[in-house]
């Protein structure tokens, strides 16, 4: 009986800490997303970038990169 209550209480505390860890992780990730700095606003096509440069007279910061690595997408 004592062993049963011991296992139950360990399980309860483990559950609590996993839950609070998951909540904290979600909270931190959300805060990180909100706190992230503004980035460079990229035009994704040459035509749109040239049109905007023509309209504004601004020079062009040009970068090109393949949106895959060894055919695996999701990474530059």
């Amino acid at each position: 009986m004592r062993r049963f209550f011991l296992i139950l209480s360990v399980g309860f505390f483990l559950g609590l800490s996993v839950n609070s860890f998951a909540q904290e992780k979600g909270k931190v990730a959300g805060e990180q997303a909100v706190a992230r700095q503004a980035g460079i606003a990229w035009y994704g096509t040459l035509t749109s970038a040239l049109a905007e440069a023509k309209r504004t007279g601004k020079p062009i910061l040009l970068v090109s990169a393949a949106p895959h690595c060894h055919s695996i997408s999701g990474i530059w």
Partner: peptide, 25 residues
């Protein structure tokens, strides 16, 4: 992702093309 470069980029038209996704590009 450098802060100074992001600031400076506001006076540019920033173009990031996807290589091998357009023949013309």
């Amino acid at each position: 992702s450098d802060k100074g470069i992001i600031r400076a980029s506001r006076e540019f038209v920033c173009a990031r093309l996807a290589t091998y996704e357009s023949k013309e590009e």
